[in-house]
Each structure stands twice: as structure tokens, then as C-alpha cells.
């Protein structure tokens, strides 16, 4: 899976979890950019990604992420 394939999937998941249409992907995007992105929906977002890509994040991996671009890189690294 290419990085842009992963990014497209992540956007689909974000649109579903945060109830937003047509999210324009940007590596620098954070929770501050999306109204419905709070501590609880953040958990559902992380777990939806785990299920989609069949991977598991550690708590420290989750805590260290600063933006969506880093999430996409982390998924790519876990997919080897």
C-alpha cells in the first residue's frame, strides 16, 4: 500500500468517525481542525484505524502523534 493509499483510507475513516464530508487531507491536520474530534472520538478514530489496517498501537505511540501525517507514517511503518 502506498503512502497516498493509506492517507485516502485514513480520510475515509475520519469522515466516518467525525461525521464530516469531504475532508481535504493535509499531513499537518490535527484535532483542532475538526469540530467533532475530541478525546472520546479520538479513541474511536485510533481503534477504527487499528481494525482497518489490522495493526495495534501502544499507548505511547498514540500519545506521541502530533498530526495526521505522523499517523499515516506510523501505519506505513507497521505494515512493513
Amino acid at each position: 500500500m502506498t503512502r497516498s493509499d493509506i492517507a485516502s483510507k485514513v480520510v475515509e475513516i475520519m469522515e466516518d468517525v467525525f461525521d464530516e464530508d469531504d475532508i481535504a487531507y493535509d499531513d499537518a491536520m490535527t484535532a483542532a481542525d475538526i469540530e467533532e474530534w475530541d478525546s472520546l472520538s479520538n479513541i474511536r478514530f485510533v481503534v477504527a484505524i487499528e481494525k482497518e489496517f489490522d495493526i495495534r498501537f501502544s499507548n505511547s505511540e498514540i500519545a506521541d502523534l502530533e498530526n495526521v501525517g505522523q499517523m499515516v507514517d506510523l501505519i506505513a511503518s507497521k505494515q512493513g
Binding site: T30, W37, D64, L65, E66, V68, Q70
Partner: peptide, 8 residues
């Protein structure tokens, strides 16, 4: 993902 900290 961690939520961004609030600015002052």
C-alpha cells in the same frame, strides 16, 4: 493520536 495542547 494525542490531542494538541491548548495554547495560552
Amino acid at each position: 493520536m494525542n490531542l494538541p495542547g491548548q495554547t495560552r
